[in-house]
Nucleic acid binder design. Structure first.
Lengths: 245, 245
DNA sequence: ACTAATAAACGTAAAAATGACGTTTATAAA
DNA sequence: TTTATAAACGTCATTTTTACGTTTATTAGT
């Protein structure tokens, strides 16, 4: 008789950060390292997204927020639930067979996947109990489970979303240059944008505010710094109903 | 002692259809009618989305497809998984308390919500074993569970999606008029569009193909019929990376 | 102090798209 | 034949986009 399935509910968090120096869109991953109890062989030696079982009394959003806080100490970051992954075989390995009351059960894990956007400098990776590490999206390490796929789908969702809403500023420091914004768009979308046209377009936005400050410590002409005003953006009654098919 | 939670996994399907005659964006709902076994009182008399428990050996997508097929007989419809709903209290009522081996368990139901886009005329509602009925999105009946919220969130996702991709044609008959498309956009987005400008914009698309046919049976000047070519749309190398923030 | 190198910042002109309208046309019903 | 009506076409000013060229401010090297 085929084993019965027992359901398990978890959240997984794709944490995006952007490094303005290397111009790299990064994902925060944690190390997974397991040895066999008997042979001391290494069973897995790869990286995974942070995730956790959803507690009985918490909502899915609360669960994701909790996981992020445990990992980074941060709350109030931009968060989006983008997809549920629950193929019957998605975590299939021998460890998922469990026995209850002399009956064999097969564990099926449904994960609700979120992505978070945060400022890289807000996370202290050197002092992280999970040994969390940033990896460039284009140079991901060996990933456990179906986490490669989850990251790819998060990236796709992010691509769409950042074209329609100014969420890109969640990934940038409070003070940024126009070129920072352009570089980040190019990293996310994988395209090249004409700098002069992009610059004009962005500067004309009312919610992109020039500061009385310039870059310091650069060995070229220092760039003007700007900030993003979420307040002004919201006040603009943002119904940009542009049909773009 | 608080009861333990047992997980239950389901899919719910928001089925959208569009009536070109009444210019109404509709949702397909089924009747829920339950009497108390003892008193014959009516316990619930409302409508719900179609949904079902996810079988052990099927994927989430397969489950949604199965539910739609049972309801409408249709396969290969446009389908999108848009959100998971799983608040601990979302289906909370007395029926969710179950007893296993003399222990009290509380049932927590996670539902993976999909929406489908289909052509109204493909569904025979008069001959439907679930007593399915179309309801205008703006005049929904009393809804069970949290299905009102699920429909609203499906609608929001549809709004965003139809601005970025030509999924609107999934809701229209194969042969449609320019005004049909405009009316549908207006229904979905809840806005008014200038007919002359919209017409010009749409006719200029290579994938909107005029047919050698006109409307019949109308008591006014019959409109030109068009079709949408998905092939041409795809071939256009569709990277409309328009930043619209 | 001058010069070279470089990225930042500004500029321009043609083309395309949009917004806001007015006008003409084909059809069925009266 | 006339009338009502929605379909379809047209126009023009404005805005946005595309595709480039030029100038400027700064640091580093001589």
């Amino acid at each position: 008789m085929a084993p019965n399935k027992i359901l398990n509910l978890s959240v997984d968090c794709v944490v995006f950060g952007y490094d303005t120096n290397t111009k790299s869109l990064n994902v925060l991953l944690i190390k997974r390292y397991l040895e066999s109890e008997t042979t001391k062989d290494v069973l897995v030696d790869d990286y995974v997204l942070t995730g956790y079982h959803v507690y009985d009394d918490e909502t899915l959003d609360e669960s994701a927020t909790r996981v992020l806080k445990e990992l980074t100490g941060l709350t109030n970051q931009y968060k989006k639930q983008f997809k549920a992954f629950g193929n019957p075989d998605r975590l299939s390995n021998e460890k998922d067979l469990i026995w209850v009351q002399n009956q064999e059960f097969n564990l099926r894990t449904i994960t609700i996947a979120y992505y978070f956007l945060l400022k890289t400098e807000d996370v202290d990776v050197d002092n992280n109990k999970y040994e969390a590490k940033w990896f460039p999206l284009r140079e991901l390490p060996e990933l456990g489970f179906d986490h490669q796929q989850i990251i790819e789908e998060a990236h796709e969702d992010l691509k769409t979303k950042c074209l329609a809403e100014p969420i890109i500023f969640e990934l940038l420091p409070d003070k940024f240059t126009i070129n920072d914004v352009q570089d980040l768009y190019e990293s996310i979308l994988g395209i090249e944008i004409d700098n002069r046209n992009f610059r004009r377009k962005l500067i004309n936005k009312k919610y992109i505010i020039p500061l009385d400050e310039k870059q310091v410590g650069v060995s070229k002409k220092p760039a003007q710094l700007y900030m993003f005003s979420k307040d002004i953006y919201k006040k603009m009654y943002h119904k940009n109903y542009l049909i773009n098919i």
